[in-house]
């Protein structure tokens, strides 16, 4: 393992009722790297992210975060999870709490930070994503894009070592996708370590240091975005990427 590796997966195997979802995944994510996972529905990319955060138990292989094993049911799990930020497709803000309380709950209760300290940082982060005026709102008063930006802030305030994004724009109306992707581009520019699952190919190309193509539970191909998008080496990656381009119907 290289010294600046944040996340390391070794031979990860995940099965649901004897159906193999992840079939031996090896992956290293370096400090500051933005890796984007693409692939057809059901290829296991979302499951991979969920396994990294131990939301799904794995049947084989290991997950190391800064050299420490991440395992479902482990005693240190809540502590290790603080280092792994995750944003979900369905935002999953806590509906009974205001935006401010959604964001400050975990720093206050998990990291035992003072309310003043947590709220001050929350305000800075909210300003950064353009939601300064929403701190007293409840999630139901926000649009999808606003909710997702709050969810990102809620993750960032924990100062995670790696950020996982699981199709975070898939549930959004098209006009709200951009505002969320802009926040993610900003995070990438700050040098954050990110692992992103997305169907937004243009975004993947713009944000990624490395693109990983998965199919049927395996990593089929990986490489720099320009190489993989323009000159895929494998037939499967080529066929998948082809689905996102349209030939003109007029000759």
């Amino acid at each position: 393992m290289e010294k600046n590796t944040v996340l390391s997966l070794r031979g990860l195997v995940k099965q649901f009722d004897n159906v193999t979802i992840l079939d031996g995944i090896d992956l290293d994510i370096r400090q500051g790297e933005v890796a984007v996972i693409i692939g057809p529905s059901g290829c296991g990319k979302s499951t991979l992210l969920r396994c990294i955060n131990a939301l799904e138990p794995v049947q084989g292989g290991e997950i190391l975060l800064e050299g420490e094993p991440v395992a479902a049911g482990g005693k240190n799990l809540p502590r290790i999870r603080q280092k792994i930020g995750m944003v979900f497709q369905s935002y999953d803000l806590f509906p009974h709490l205001t935006v401010m309380d959604n964001i400050t709950l975990s720093p206050r209760k998990v990291q035992k930070r003072s309310r003043e300290d947590a709220e001050q940082e929350a305000r800075e982060l909210l300003a950064r994503v353009g939601l300064s005026d929403k701190e007293k709102s409840y999630p139901r008063e926000l649009s999808g894009g606003q909710k997702q930006r709050v969810a990102i802030v809620r993750m960032l305030i924990m100062h995670p070592e790696i950020l996982l994004f699981d199709e975070v724009t898939a549930a959004l109306d098209p006009e709200m996708v951009r505002e969320v992707l802009d926040v993610m581009l900003d995070l990438a520019a700050q040098g954050r370590t990110m692992l992103i699952v997305t169907h937004e190919m243009n975004f993947a190309r713009a944000v990624a240091d490395r693109v990983i193509f998965m199919d049927e539970g395996r990593i089929v191909e990986e490489g720099a975005p320009d190489d993989l998008f323009d000159h895929p080496k494998t037939e499967r990656a080529g066929a998948f990427l082809n689905m996102f381009t349209f030939e003109s119907v007029r000759a």
Partner: peptide, 22 residues
């Protein structure tokens, strides 16, 4: 919803904290 449990866990809340606050 299951996701409420998952996002609480993903934030590093212990099971007890997840139940108590979320």
């Amino acid at each position: 919803p299951k996701h409420q449990f998952e996002s609480a866990e993903a934030l590093g809340l212990t099971k007890a904290q997840m139940h108590l606050y979320i």
